[in-house]
Design a protein around this nucleic acid. Structure first.
Length: 263
DNA sequence: ATGACTGCCTCTGGCAGA
């Protein structure tokens, strides 16, 4: 079963690209971020034509997350990240699909820093870790998928020098991400590509795409029950090069019986 | 090279993104 995450940078502007990606790669579940639409304008019918059921958490103008599931209704388990009643940004949605709990996460960017946006990012990270610990205790197979807005190490960016003062690489951001991994969550792409060099984002500016000046900020973190089932993971890089593409590429994991696992 | 883009909701320019 393939589970994917895709920061689409506007579900309405990106709809043809998104639909063709679903048709071509056929993920069982797709987590979307930055849908940038209010709930009433979410194009659920278009996904329905391809057999996908959807839940979504929208917001006017920016942010917004969704979960699509092929042939089955996602069973929503959480809308909005717990831990701060004053936080009204649409950045977290969670559902159970085929017995797997799946979160679609759009972690705050955090720039500029220092300042309230960076503080919000770090506080959001703390809340995510606390909620993830609760999910862990439930022992339901879980995948925390989305745009974490963290470049985990210098192996995850084309050049470590270019954005050294950026919220994506600051030690506080990297430490917060590392704490999730230390809690036991497995970074699927990172685990299978220890040498690094895998990108999920290329800026629209400065010829970043044709020069392959990218970095890795979209992650799928797996609970042990899911990590044991991990057979492959990758990036649909080619989709980044198409007309009117998102600045992110889709990232996916394939779960199933591992051929070498003991019976 | 100090440059370079894109979407959104219009206050069609300012904000947000990364």
């Amino acid at each position: 079963m393939k589970i994917a995450t895709f920061n689409i940078n506007g579900v309405k502007a990106r709809l043809p690209r998104l639909l063709e990606w679903l048709e071509e790669t056929q993920p069982a579940v797709a987590c979307l971020q930055e849908i940038k639409t209010t709930d009433d304008a979410f194009p659920a019918d278009e996904f329905g034509k391809l057999g996908y059921h959807a839940i979504w958490h929208g917001q006017k103008g920016f942010n917004g997350v969704a979960i699509l599931a092929h042939g089955v209704e996602p069973q929503e388990t959480q809308r909005g990240l717990p831990g701060d009643d004053a936080d009204d940004q649409a950045r977290y949605l969670e559902a159970e699909v085929h017995g797997i709990r799946i979160a679609s996460i759009y972690l705050p960017n955090g720039n500029p820093l220092p300042g309230p946006k960076f503080d919000y990012k770090l506080a959001w990270f703390d809340r995510l870790r606390a909620h993830a610990a609760q999910l862990w205790q439930s022992e339901v197979p879980t995948i925390l998928a989305g745009d974490y807005n963290v470049i985990p190490t210098d192996k995850d960016i084309w050049s470590g020098r270019v954005i050294e003062e950026d919220a994506l690489v600051m030690p506080q951001s990297r430490d917060a991400y590392a704490r999730l991994l230390a809690d036991g969550w497995a970074d699927a792409i990172g685990t299978l590509n220890p040498e690094g060099g895998v990108w999920t984002y290329w800026d629209y500016q400065a010829g970043a795409w044709p020069r392959d000046h990218g970095f890795r900020i979209d992650h799928l973190l797996l609970s042990p029950e899911c990590a044991d089932q991990l057979v492959a993971a990758g990036v649909n890089k080619e989709h980044r090069g198409r007309d009117k593409a998102s600045d992110h590429a889709p990232v996916w994991v394939e779960l199933g019986e591992r051929p070498n696992s003991p019976r």
